[in-house]
C-alpha cells in the first residue's frame, strides 16, 4: 500500500504479542498486494482489465469490500467514489506541472468515472462495468479495510490492548492503554514542520477508529490557491486548502470513506456509524473547527 503501518501492542506475554503483531501485519501486506491499483498482477488490476468485457466473479471478501464501497458511495451522497482514478491521474499530472487542468480535460476524465457504472451481482459475487475504461481505485478505503482486518486478527489472537495506524492517517484501537486510559491521538497542523509536533486537536480512542484527510501534502499552489489531492467526484475539481477533516467511529473503512467525503465537499455529516466528524479550516494561525456529532451514543468515554 506504499505506506508505513505501525502497531503498538500491550499484554503480559511478549512472545504472544510479537507473533500476533506479525500475523496482523502479514494480513495488511496481503491485502495491499490483492487490492493494489498499480500492481498489474493484483486481483483489483485483473478486475479493472476485464470487468468491462465480461462478468468477473471475485472472492467473497473482495465482493464484501465492493459492497462496502457501494454502501459508502450511497451514504456519502456520492462524495466517496472509488472510480475517480482518471481524475486522480489528471490532477497528479497537474500537480507536477503546478497548473490546474482545463475544464475540457476534467470533463473528459469525468466521462470515464462514476460508481453507478459498477454492477454488483450478489447472487454469484460477480462484478461488471457497464462503461469501457472505468477503473476502480481502492486507495481511499483499502488502508481502512486492511486495518479492520488486522484488528480482527489481533482480537482472534486474544489481544486486548492495541493501536494500529497506516500512514498516520488511518488509526484503530483495541481497548485502552496499559494504564486504562484511552489512546490519545493528536491531529497535527499540516502547515507546521513535523518536528514542531504542533497539534491543534486531539482525539480519544477506545475500541474505535480515526481517519484524517488533508488538502496539504500532495498539493500545489496556483495564484495563491492551494489545490489538494482530494477531489470532488461530481465536479472533478480538487479541494482547495487549507482544510483538514477527521472522523471517528467503530470501523476504519467507514472512517476512511467519510473523512475523504467530508473534505471532497459533502460539508455535513449525519452518518450514524460515526461518533465525531470534524472539518477544520485554517485562518491565519488559527484553526476554525466545525464539528458534527452524528451519533453521540457511540462516543468514547
Amino acid at each position: 500500500m506504499a505506506t508505513r503501518f505501525e502497531l503498538v501492542l500491550w499484554g503480559p506475554d511478549r512472545v504472544a504479542m510479537q507473533s500476533a503483531g506479525e500475523m496482523a501485519l502479514r494480513e495488511v501486506d496481503r491485502i495491499g498486494k490483492r487490492f493494489s491499483f498499480y500492481d498489474p498482477a493484483s486481483e483489483l488490476s485483473r478486475l479493472n482489465r476485464q470487468a468491462a468485457k465480461r462478468d468477473m466473479v471475485v472472492a467473497g471478501d473482495f465482493f464484501e469490500l465492493l459492497l462496502a464501497c457501494d454502501d459508502l458511495h450511497s451514504s456519502t451522497d456520492g462524495f466517496f467514489d472509488p472510480t475517480i482514478g482518471p481524475l486522480m491521474k489528471l490532477w497528479h499530472t497537474s500537480a507536477e506541472r503546478k497548473k490546474q487542468p482545463t475544464s475540457s480535460a476534467i470533463q473528459k476524465a469525468l466521462n470515464v468515472t462514476g460508481w453507478k457504472h459498477v454492477m454488483l451481482d450478489k447472487r454469484n459475487y460477480s462484478v461488471r462495468f457497464d462503461k469501457e475504461g472505468l477503473q476502480i481505485d481502492l486507495g481511499g478505503i483499502a488502508k481502512g479495510w486492511a486495518i479492520d482486518e488486522a484488528i480482527n486478527i489481533l482480537l482472534e489472537a486474544g489481544v486486548s490492548h492495541a493501536l494500529l495506524h497506516g500512514g498516520t492517517s488511518s488509526v484503530r484501537s483495541i481497548g485502552v492503554q496499559e494504564d486504562q486510559k484511552s489512546w490519545i491521538v493528536g491531529i497535527q497542523d499540516p502547515y507546521v514542520p513535523p518536528d514542531a509536533a504542533q497539534w491543534f486537536s486531539t482525539v480519544s480512542l477506545r475500541d474505535s477508529a480515526l481517519s484524517v484527510s488533508a488538502v496539504h501534502g500532495k498539493s500545489f499552489l496556483q495564484n495563491d490557491i492551494e489545490f489538494g489531492h482530494v477531489l470532488n467526484p461530481k465536479s472533478g475539481m480538487a479541494r482547495t486548502g487549507p482544510h483538514v477533516s477527521w472522523v471517528t467511529g467503530s470501523s476504519a473503512v467507514v472512517c476512511d470513506a467519510w473523512s475523504t467525503a467530508l473534505l471532497a465537499g459533502h460539508g455535513v455529516c449525519s452518518e450514524p456509524r460515526l461518533e465525531i466528524a470534524c472539518l477544520a479550516q485554517k485562518n491565519g494561525t488559527q484553526w476554525d473547527i466545525e464539528s458534527f456529532k452524528p451519533n453521540p451514543s457511540l462516543l468514547s468515554s
Partner: peptide
Amino acid sequence: DSWRRASS
C-alpha cells in the same frame, strides 16, 4: 519473522 503463531 518469529515463525510463531498466536491464538486466544
